[in-house]
Design a protein around this nucleic acid. Structure first.
Lengths: 266, 266
DNA sequence: ACAAAAGTGTTGTCAATACACCCATGC
DNA sequence: GCATGGGTGTATTGACAACACTTTTGT
């Protein structure tokens, strides 16, 4: 392909859409976006879901957090849920607003600005990102649909060193917020685990979120005290070692014992 | 004064400014506001600083949180600091973003919409409020300047039952966030207290934020362990009872002992 | 039999709680 | 001298951290 030519097409495209925008009553608010740090856990490592930023003029396709400018007159939470629904096919996922990023220069490279303006057909000045994190059970569904349309894929947190826009900063702050919340709210572990899980998986969840290791015996002592973690009469199958007992989470117990738990896992 | 006449003037005024807005390049972003829940402590009760929403057409002057639409190309934190500077005369106040309120219908009454549009000379659709709380020492300055221009006054938290817009909700969430932070970060007490304070004042600060009472002896035992709280060779003066010893806060000690403190005051 | 992970107990230290009386000062 | 809030000690309980070996399964 002829590179001179490609450049020309690109510039033309950019100007066309900018022009179109000023004439129409665009449905996107050019100042507001919602971005989602979607955490998942595959019984080994903490992962996040990223999408590819794509377009005809892109020199470096780059990874970004799933998110979007918000439609006028749509609730932010509802919109964040839509993003999740499209990517994961799931409704009613755990969703928590953790921070809003609004520096005027957070989107500053010409490539970044053009990508947004072309994608949404708006002229932007400052885009404020209201950021949410959410928790999903990786095993519970497949990403086939969204892999086709958005190239959404899970990445190990430790492998991510660069993201488009300021999404690296957003991801880091989201992880911090998750760590903070886990201290108060053990509930969130069960959003990441399958229905039936072993205590080792639960411990791995804690460890991969907090980035530290817990003493195995002390951890189990604590779990033993939590009335909302129920032992089942089932064991792991097909493992090449002593199979672990499986447990489930009892939401009713959890609700009634909520108060005693606040100080629980520090 | 003739009420018919007043109404007419009001309507005219509203339309004029709306028209003006579409023609000019207004400096305010009509989608973004910053609101501040400014906490203060007068050695007895937790208070917040409120301003009067005023205008020529107001039937019920109402109290609101200090805040404003943000100027295009101004950092949110910088803008929140400006609001504080204008009201309190102080720079470098403790400031923390705690939540963003963005429901499309959070500003819905005609009076609310008109007040904003007239005050800032913009047409609004949805206004997202990025909300901060801040902590100031009430004794350390006077509010004379801002009392004149904004009618800013301190109100006891327990006396506030109604605020303009959705500011009651914002205030409640700000108080919750403050309570949460106090658990991790005893530092914030010292943002509310004068340089020299008694242990009773420190305990009152905790109690008025958390809304619960602490056992006086146990509280002092904890303080005794905190190396960053320094006893002075001074006593209260002019009190009609045994005068309390005064203490100060040692910021250097605090920084170095930061890690051991994370679990401190639960 | 071996590899691999599951599962189990004890001890010492320290923090959290509950609880009631004397002390120093101003008036 | 009395009213007011400041200031102190002890005993119990329970949580937390440190630490290493045996058990059960698949291959």
């Amino acid at each position: 392909m002829d590179f001179q030519n490609l450049t020309f097409i690109f510039v033309f495209y950019t100007y066309r859409t900018k022009y179109a925008m000023t004439e129409t009553n665009n449905q996107y608010n050019p100042s507001l976006s919602v971005d989602c740090v979607i955490f998942g856990f595959d019984s080994k490592q903490l992962k996040i879901l990223l999408v590819e930023r794509s377009g005809p003029y892109q020199t470096n396709p780059q990874l970004k957090l799933p998110g979007s400018l918000v439609l006028k007159n749509t609730k932010l939470e509802v919109y964040a849920n839509q993003v999740l629904k499209e990517l994961t096919g799931l409704n009613e996922i755990y969703l928590k607003q953790f921070y809003t990023f609004g520096n005027p220069d957070r989107i500053k490279t010409p490539e970044d600005i053009e990508w947004i303006e072309n994608t949404y057909q708006v002229t932007i000045e400052r885009v404020v990102s209201i950021s949410y994190y959410s928790l999903v059970k990786i095993d519970q569904y497949n990403l086939n649909l969204s892999e086709e349309s958005y190239h959404a894929k899970w990445y190990n947190i430790s492998d991510i060193h660069e993201l488009a826009f300021d999404h690296m900063e957003i991801m880091k702050k989201g992880l911090e917020a998750l760590r903070q919340e886990l201290i108060y709210n053990p509930l969130i572990c069960f959003e990441l685990l399958p229905e039936k899980f072993s205590l080792r998986e639960l411990q791995d969840t804690y460890e991969s979120i907090q980035g530290i290791e817990y003493d195995n015996r002390n951890f189990r002592k604590k779990i033993g005290k939590a009335k909302y973690i129920i032992q089942l009469n089932e064991k792991q199958l097909g493992v090449a070692h002593k199979p672990a007992l499986l447990y489930k989470f009892d939401k009713e117990q959890y609700q009634t014992n909520r108060l005693e738990l606040i100080k629980f896992f520090i």
